[in-house]
Nucleic acid binder design. Structure first.
Lengths: 158, 158
DNA sequence: ATTAAACCCGAGCGACGCAGTTGGTTTTTG
DNA sequence: CAAAAACCAACTGCGTCGCTCGGGTTTAAT
């Protein structure tokens, strides 16, 4: 789960696409002007989105893009995974097993990053394009009441 | 919340520091060899950690670093916020109000990224160094049972 | 058939931040 | 004093990101 501005652009474009969905498909140049994103850059993003099966294209004049599935069945996590390639295995993260299993004490943090990735994916896959459009954010997560630590103070974070 | 490998290194080093805490302070060169991180790079990270009040330094031979607070009172989120400077306000993210409020329709995704940031911070601030050491991960988050969407299927995501 | 609108593709570029290096200076212990 | 450590500042490869450029190819309107 990469989480760069590239993925953000893709989500912005997909939300725009879902918003202006009508009988006619939506052209990329329309999205480009509305969202102020470079047309060629959009083309690159949508090429990936199409390969991932998230959108369908209609060629020729009056053509454009349509959501492959409904806006309620397209999750934000899918968009980001389609656009950002799946990270380059820094140090020990993922990469299967090698290099990390060797010295367990060195990778105490491994579980932490893995669990963080899970949390992010869990959240993003709980939000659909329709949710964003209607500003109905997040089937809310609540903290387990049996949690040992986690003081609610949290005075840090500017 | 930046979430780069820089922050990961910082957390790795802090976990190492917490693990080897004794009467004597821990020198950076010890951490450097154990965690295989460049010494000078560690110095830069710990300069920030010190300014953030997360560690205390002892100068001279036999000197090194100590946790400012206990390992149970140092949260992972604090470490990451200390080393990664607070993001560069891409497009509309944060930056107060300007450029985003103008055209509301353009920033439908704004709430989404904000909520995602909240989720990440919430998770990372629920984990202390002690939790990582003892592999007691995450005062677990559970999904609210009243959630409307969020099918548990989630067949996507390679 | 012509033309224009739209998608498709690949090479390349400027800027930025990360990871690391060099080369010092202070401080403190022995 | 000499050695060990924290401190400090500047600089440098290098990769990636966001984006441009310049071509295509396919389709539909006329």
């Amino acid at each position: 789960m990469k989480l760069s501005t590239k993925g953000r652009y893709a989500v912005m474009a997909m939300v725009d696409l879902a918003r202006h969905a009508q009988a006619k498909p939506v052209s990329l140049s329309d999205i480009a002007t509305r969202q102020e994103i470079s047309l060629s850059y959009l083309e690159q993003l949508f090429a990936r989105l199409r390969r991932a099966g998230l959108v369908k294209s209609v060629r020729g004049p009056g053509g454009g893009y349509r959501l492959a599935r409904g806006s309620a069945d397209t999750r934000v996590s899918e968009i980001i995974l389609a656009v950002d390639e799946p990270i380059s295995a820094t140090r020990c993260t993922e990469m299967g097993a090698t290099g990390c299993r060797a010295d367990r004490s060195k990778c105490l943090t491994h579980d932490l990053w893995e669990e963080l990735g899970n949390q992010i994916h869990l959240f993003l896959s709980s939000v659909t394009l329709l949710d964003v459009l209607e500003r109905k954010l997040a089937p809310r997560f609540i903290e387990a009441p049996s949690a040992a630590n986690a003081e609610p103070s949290m005075a840090a974070a500017s």
